[in-house]
């Protein structure tokens, strides 16, 4: 199997403001969000980062997407260093967060063209790809309607499509189904499987077990910024359900720390 993403010993600390110290109930003004984190994903699979809130999932995905820089360690996509060549990485990846809210004022058509252009996609190619994607996801009919007037599901579809204007081979989705109703969530999972069938490699983060069970080939369990285990879904769920497995690991981990 061909490794696409290799994450090596990532570490990221944040300085906490006074307000954050209160929220996090800590006296320390430093938060280790990601701690010596390593894992790999393989070509054509969907990898799921599973962990509770505040585990460091978003931070990890942001580092891989070149949005923030790691203090230590590095990640490589197709052998290219995220740290040293962020410009090349940005051409290879598609990135999307669930909290994304496109500007109400614009139409899907306009936004698609805008991001195509920013990604440097050639006009003719962009047009062809837009027609394909819009048709496939039923955006066609609404492409000249302002985002503000569309349903949540349609908005989410447009956000997904827009993160893929440059046809990236490696796709990063942070909490893709967070806060979505069941129908929209189903649409997103179908979309992920569809992308996988096209040969894309995908990494998602979530705290939802069922999403992992439905779409992932490989799972990394992340707690308090540390990668506790990274294995295939099959291996992890050999003798118990994913949920049970997770809590077994979680108890071990958090228990150990309290001692």
């Amino acid at each position: 199997m061909e490794e696409i993403l290799v994450v090596k010993n990532l570490k990221k600390t944040f300085k906490l403001s006074k307000k954050q110290q209160k929220i996090e109930k800590t006296k320390s003004d430093i938060k280790v969000a990601v701690n010596d984190l390593s894992f790999s994903t393989y070509k054509g699979e969907i990898y799921g980062l599973l962990g509770p809130n505040g585990a460091g999932k978003t931070t990890t995905l942001r580092i891989i997407s070149t949005l923030i820089k790691a203090d230590e360690g590095d990640a490589f996509i197709d052998g290219v260093s995220v740290k040293n060549s962020p410009d090349i990485i940005r051409k290879k990846i598609g990135f999307l967060t669930s909290e994304l809210k496109l500007e109400d004022f614009f139409t899907p058509n306009y936004l698609y063209d805008y991001f195509s252009e920013l990604h440097g996609v050639e006009k003719h190619t962009a047009e062809k790809r837009k027609n394909e994607l819009f048709k496939k996801f039923g955006i066609d009919k609404f492409k000249e309607v302002k985002i503000g007037e569309l349903s949540t599901g349609m908005k989410q579809k447009i956000s997904l499509v827009i993160s893929l204007v440059h046809d990236p081979n490696f796709i990063i989705f942070d909490e893709p189904t967070n806060g979505l109703d069941v129908l929209t969530a189903k649409m997103v999972t179908d979309f992920l499987i569809d992308l996988k069938n096209q040969g894309k490699t995908i990494i998602i983060s979530t705290h939802i077990f069922s999403l992992i069970e439905k779409v992932c080939d490989r799972v990394g369990i992340i707690i308090n910024g540390k990668m506790i285990c990274s294995d295939t879904l099959e291996n992890l769920t050999a003798d118990m359900s994913l949920e049970d497995k997770f809590f077994e690991i979680y108890k071990q981990e958090v228990g150990e720390e309290n001692e």
């Binding site: 942001r62 070149t66 940005r90 051409k91 967060t97 994304l100 809210k101 496109l102 991001f115 990604h119």
Partner: peptide, 16 residues
């Protein structure tokens, strides 16, 4: 506004 809506990340992952 872009920061609030999260679209800033979409903008910042472009090669621009």
């Amino acid at each position: 506004g872009e920061k609030e809506r999260g679209t800033i990340a979409t903008l910042l992952v472009t090669p621009v």
